[in-house]
Amino acid sequence: MADLAQAQAGATMPGQPYMELVNVWKRFGEGDKQTVAVRNVDLAIQPGEFVTLIGPSGCGKSTLFNMIAGLLPSDSDGSILVKGKAQQDGALLGKVSFMPQRDLLFPWRTVLDNATLALEVEGMPKRLARQKAEALFPEFGLKGFEQHYPHQLSGGMRQRVALMRTFLFERDLILLDEPFGALDALTRSMMQRWLLDIWEKHRRTVLFITHDIDEAIFLGDKVVVMTARPGTIKCQETITLPRPRDVSVVTTPEFMEVKKKLLAVVEEESLKTFASATMRP
């Protein structure tokens, strides 16, 4: 799988970003009622890079994500390029491995069949898809739960099933929308480390949304901060912390320094959102 990812990544020209957002806008409604959700976003994601994105709640992160996943067309003044090629409306569907905030497991499918969902949609024969998924079960800590139904699993396990579903849908770019948002702190930090292990093994390009600064720094090669609505990119911070990272990295001075800097930015943006929300008539 890693070979495959590298082979695909190899198709990009050296130095060329895997995905590039150029002046991306999204407006809803018309005339007086128009609201701008996303404004003038420029962002480049290199192949194999782990990019984390933070911003105050309601800043348009999810709108941005939906556009990258191809679920929502971006406004015509900008463009989304993949390997240098502009993507028309809907062209991105099926090209990005997307994991929404909630696990969205189907209650009528077993864990195994939930994991193979994307493969089935692709048209892979069920037997083959299952074989492929079964191989990943130990790695995702789900061995022995293949035939369980989602309602029999804990929140962390459900999230891992959803992640496995995303991983099995082998695309160059993985979009993760606050995947650990609903988990408790302990489970979450375990999941973070585990995600890094997996990522390091497979080296896929990841764009990860979160509202947790620690998480963003701990996971990312690059942290992108979005502003309050209308969302745009306020700053980008490259994280140079060595990999592989473990829990101890969180207490290093380098980490603290980055965190302090980002915290200030995010705080400022959050205050803006809060103020505008409370001042609304």
């Binding site: 969205l104 969902l117 949609v121």
Partner: peptide, 25 residues
């Protein structure tokens, strides 16, 4: 809409969404 979007992001067709998601649900 989220579940439908998930399937759409996998490249599922209208019929695929009906068969795999809406009918069982």
């Amino acid at each position: 809409a989220e579940s439908i979007n998930l399937l759409r992001s996998f490249g599922a067709s209208r019929l695929g969404i009906l068969w795999r998601l809406q009918l069982p649900a």
